[in-house]
Computed example of a mutant assay.
Amino acid sequence: MELILTRVCKNKDYTEGRIEIDGTPFCDTLEPTWRDVGWGHRGRKVEGRTAIPEGRYPVVITRSPRFGEWLPLLLHVPLFEGIRIHAGNSVHDTAGCILVGCRRKPGLLLDSRLWVYRLKRKIVEAKARGEGVWIVVK
């Protein structure tokens, strides 16, 4: 299964995007400010307040010590560790991670817990079919 996160708005306070699953629209996303911190770039990473670099990353579900629940985790993100997809409503909830939900107005998501549940269910179903799960961030 392949998740495609397309960033549609990058501003100084947050980054908005949309996720498709295998080409079908799924939900909206919210991340911290995007800074070009990839290899060979001049951007400066600000801990917990920088969106991850564009790329393709494997996704697994593991228990988050911070949240105390099972959540999607992105693996092998350059310069970053512990990047999760989790619930939250505003950029203040991201801690550097990807929030999912339904965009209500700029910089605000609603029904985030519902969308995390739906996403976890899709990932678990794909893994049960023996599929790898990847996210492409662009």
Results as ranks from 00 to 15, higher is better:
L73C: 12
I61K: 03
L5A: 10
R113K: 13
L30E: 04
N89I: 03
H86I: 01
L74E: 10
A87L: 07
V8D: 14
S112N: 00
I123C: 04
P106Q: 10
L30N: 07
L3H: 07
V91T: 03
G48V: 08
K122Y: 10
F80S: 06
R63H: 12
P25T: 06
V8E: 15
L99S: 02
L110P: 09
I85L: 08
G96N: 06
R35V: 10
Y57F: 07
M1N: 12
D36F: 06
H86A: 00
G55K: 03
G88M: 08
E125I: 12
R84Q: 13
V124A: 10
G40P: 01
V60A: 11
R44N: 08
R121M: 09
K10N: 15
K127I: 14
K10R: 15
W39S: 14
E16K: 01
G43F: 04
E31H: 11
R35A: 10
H41D: 06
P72L: 09
L79Y: 15
L75T: 09
Y14D: 11
P53R: 07
W115V: 02
L119W: 05
I19M: 11
I61H: 06
P78Q: 03
D93S: 02
V137D: 06
W70V: 12
A128M: 11
K122E: 11
K45T: 02
M1Q: 12
W39Q: 13
A87H: 11
L99P: 02
D22Y: 08
I4F: 14
R7W: 07
R7C: 00
R129Q: 14
E81Q: 14
T62N: 11
S64D: 01
I98Y: 09
A51L: 01
R35I: 10
G23Q: 01
K120P: 00
E69F: 02
I98L: 05
G130H: 05
Y14I: 05
G88T: 10
I61W: 03
D111Y: 13
V59E: 01
K12D: 15
S90C: 13
